[in-house]
Amino acid sequence: MAEEKKKGFFKRLVSGLAKTRDNIVAGFDNLFSGFSSIDEDFYEELEEILIMGDIGINATNAILTRLREQVAQQHIKEPAQCKEILIRSIKEQMVVDSTDYEFENRKSVILVIGVNGVGKTTSVGKLAGLLKSQGKKVILAAADTFRAAAGEQLTLWANKAGVELIGGQAGADPAAVIYDAVAAAKARNADILICDTAGRLHNKKNLMEELRKIYRILEKEYPEAYLETLVVLDGTTGQNALAQAREFSQVAKVNGIILTKLDGTAKGGIAVAIQSELDIPVKYIGVGEKIDDLQKFDADAFVDALFLRKDHNEC
């Protein structure tokens, strides 16, 4: 345990990403050393490598188009030179503005939404822990009144994080829970109210309507609070994650993504796809089940972890 702590967050991320990393990195190395000129075969090979990392076809094409432009502009002849350009361009794309974390410094409501099983409740628990450790007064709202035992699960997280939780009976109207939680947040002068919601498939109309109702209540009852909506996406999800993010954006003003389960093998790629196609930044990533396993997204570290070999012993 202590050793694990010492190992540090980034190391764990790197080791978590190791396998994909190995695939991508191995592919990368072969690619840049194996080709002597930049031709169509080279691009095709690169395309395959990116797709294997869940980056998706559209984002991959966008990346390749940019690369082609730069190769043409800068008269690049060597495949090896492309590597640097490629990594830099993905990093630039993935950078998160510091203003993106504005909500952390204001009186705010964080609404956490997502499909079933992506890790919403866990992320809410971890986020509460993270913000609490920054000295914020946090209140949790357990508005997932649908899934069996979701409330209990969040209660355990609330205890771990040492924050207060406002819940409702199983089957209660989630909007009512939000209403109560807003009242509690006001009464206790909380800094941040984090709302856990029920998992909903983005193509289910009623559940999306329920979300709209929650919004109406927040806007009406707590207009002074800064509203931050975070969509939780499972890092193992493929291209459907894009559909999820897009559909949720249609009912909610989505400010950012929490990308979970990055401690497995494939990962990361979909974050690039979402940033590229929807321009929604990944703000937090989850790399484990412990309360401190949620961290702010760091574009440099993330892209390096995806593409580079052994450059991160210093982290």
Binding site: M52, D54, G117, A241, T265
Partner: peptide
């Protein structure tokens, strides 16, 4: 298995 799993489904 979640039907939405990406490229990693094979590894899993």
């Amino acid at each position: 298995v979640d039907a939405m799993t990406g490229q990693d489904a094979v590894t899993v």
